[in-house]
Design a binder for these strands. Structure first.
Lengths: 183, 183
DNA sequence: TAGAACATGTAAGACGTTACATGATTCA
DNA sequence: TGAATCATGTAACGTCTTACATGTTCTA
């Protein structure tokens, strides 16, 4: 599942302009790419050349014209292929753990400050995510099945952040109690 | 925490050749980079030019000579700066969730097959990780504090994979029972 | 009047990966 | 005899990011 397939997926849900795709991708934790123009507009031109998508120009009064892209039959069949591919395990880029790994040269107090800052970052994110899950009106809901799967996807992220928060709490507690001195 | 700082961290633990660093980084989940030569050797030359590391050539009989790099005082001070930086929240690249997001065009059976494959991938990884944690003799242990933190880092990964496994089990159960039909 | 939202695109560069190149030794 | 390990490096390419360029309309 690369960005290219993710865009095909988005277009299989609803026709969108490059700008629309950019918004969705930038705002989402699931679609973890940055959503920069350079990639999105380039991929759209590429997909068009391969006839996996088509577009029609929509003129708007008082707003710039937009190219609304739709997926083609050929595009759906390519999307189907990538959906059936063997799932990849998550790539976890936990920079904080790399940071923590080399803190031997810091003081206890400095390490506790780091843990506190990490706690704040994670709980902020968790709060934002729960908020956003509630309001976000535009998620796919073409069937009860799809609604369920999107609920599970959102839960997956909430679980992950919650587990990270639990982990940092336990670490703070044990660390400040000097648990590492035992045994 | 970029690869550059991670390498400084590794060298703050023990002097190493580019080849050593490559092995450690490739084998580790924490140091999530691929560990390719191109980056590692380039970064080492760069760090040397900035006098953050120094090296001495170690000749070996019947094996190629190696450049053993050590961190300098200046390097330690730069590392210290990056260790005190505000922690970043994890970047989660959960490709499987992107895949699952667009499965509306698949059958129930195909979705269950995907979930099963994902379960297998995750439980494989979890098993490998627990195995590897046990045998891996060469992790930093310069103090009880450091030993504790490295244990917590390993636990973080185990927790994450375990949570993912629990999530997929629950999803399989609910999905195959047709839970999404209710409400 | 300044900035954000809408909308599409390009330029430059950083970052990352695979594969190639070299060459000795060890192990199956 | 062929592959793996040790060891350093380069080439080519692909991905990803920030910033720039253009232009209107709406909002603070």
């Amino acid at each position: 599942m690369d960005l290219r397939s993710a865009i095909l997926g988005l277009l299989s849900w609803k026709q969108s302009s490059g700008y629309d795709l950019k918004q969705i991708i930038s705002d989402s934790d699931v679609f973890y790419w940055s959503g920069n123009n350079n990639q999105i507009y380039k991929i759209l031109l590429e997909l068009q050349k391969e006839e996996l998508v088509s577009h029609q120009v929509q003129l708007q009064e008082s707003l710039p014209a937009k190219k609304v892209y739709s997926i083609t039959e050929k595009g759906l069949s390519e999307l189907r292929q990538s959906l059936l591919a063997t799932p990849e395990i998550p790539e976890l880029h936990k920079n904080f753990l790399v940071q923590l790994a080399w803190t031997e040269i810091l003081s206890d107090k400095e390490i506790l400050t780091l843990l506190k800052k990490y706690e704040d970052e994670i709980s902020d994110r968790l709060r934002m995510y729960q908020h956003q899950s509630a309001r976000s009106g535009s998620i796919p809901e073409r069937s009860k099945r799809e609604k369920y799967l999107w609920k599970r996807i959102a839960d997956n992220f909430i679980n992950t952040y919650q587990a990270e928060l639990d982990w940092v709490h336990q670490t703070q507690r044990e660390f400040s109690e000097g648990k590492f001195e035992d045994k």
